[in-house]
Computed example of a mutant assay.
Amino acid sequence: MLHQAGIKFKPLPNVSLLDIRAWKPLSKLETPPSDKKGKLLMPSLEIDNNTDCLLRNLIALEQLHYPGEEYICRYVKLLDFLVDLENDVDLLIENKVIVSKLGDSKAVAELINGLCREMVEVSSTFDPLSKLLNDYYDSSWNKNKAYLVSVYFKNIWTGTGTVVGSLILLVTVTRFILYLLRY
């Protein structure tokens, strides 16, 4: 749904899993990235056969021994917020935010959605990010702009055809109005 509203996912190489940035600062200490509006910058996550076991053990460790400091739990909650279906995983794989070694997008989606099932509710440091993403999605301007770009300007030929068609329509309407004004 975020992709339909125009959000672009970009990978951040060699950073912490919690170093997630949006197009505007989420706190007073954070500096805004130089990218345009509508980009979500996330570190790449490599998912293989051991990821489920590793993340479950880290979640259990954080919830038992580090209450209030559940960083991995918060990251997994954010991933669960972003991923519902295998199409969501395909989009994140295409944008190199997720590197899947499982071979199947459906398995990755089930893994991510299954991690939060037995997790105790945690307060999220990503709440401002979630609010920012929801506000961006709720904006009809962003949805319409993303739709126009994806339908009428998805490649050079459809974009050129759209521009030429619009120019022909504009010239035709202008000539019709001038014709009416003469009489």
Rank of each mutant, 00 (worst) to 15 (best):
A109H: 00
F9T: 08
P33G: 02
V99M: 05
K39Y: 13
S27E: 05
K28G: 10
F9V: 05
L17K: 10
S130T: 15
L12I: 10
K101R: 15
D84N: 13
H3T: 09
A5Y: 03
C53E: 14
Q63A: 06
L133Q: 04
Q4S: 14
K154C: 15
Y147N: 07
N57G: 14
C73H: 08
P128L: 01
R21E: 12
L102D: 01
P43G: 08
E110S: 12
V163G: 00
L41I: 11
F153C: 02
D52Q: 13
V164R: 04
I156R: 13
G6C: 03
S123L: 10
K145S: 10
G159W: 05
L91H: 07
N134T: 08
V149M: 13
Y179G: 05
K77S: 15
T160A: 06
P25M: 00
K143V: 12
W141V: 14
W141M: 07
L178A: 12
I156C: 03
E118L: 06
V151A: 07
I72G: 01
L115P: 00
G103R: 04
K37V: 15
A146F: 09
L82F: 06
L133T: 02
V97L: 01
L85A: 14
Y179R: 11
K131G: 08
D127H: 02
P11D: 06
F153M: 03
L54R: 10
I47E: 06
K36D: 15
L181I: 13
N50S: 15
D127N: 12
L79M: 11
K106T: 09
P13T: 09
L2C: 02
L178P: 05
T160H: 10
I112N: 01
K143N: 07
I47A: 02
S105N: 11
F81R: 12
H65M: 13
T172N: 09
N50R: 12
D90I: 00
E62H: 02
K10H: 11
Y71A: 09
S34Q: 11
V149I: 14
L18I: 12
K8R: 13
L26H: 02
L129E: 04
V83P: 04
L169T: 08
L181Y: 13
E121M: 12
Y179F: 09
I20A: 03
E30S: 04
L82M: 05
R175M: 15
L129Q: 07
L170T: 14
R175L: 15
K36M: 14
G103L: 06
L82G: 08
F153Y: 07
L91G: 00
V149T: 15
F9P: 06
T162F: 11
V171R: 05
F9D: 09
D48Y: 03
W157I: 10
L17P: 12
L129R: 03
Y147L: 14
E70L: 02
R182V: 11
C73W: 03
G159Y: 06
L64K: 13
L26W: 02
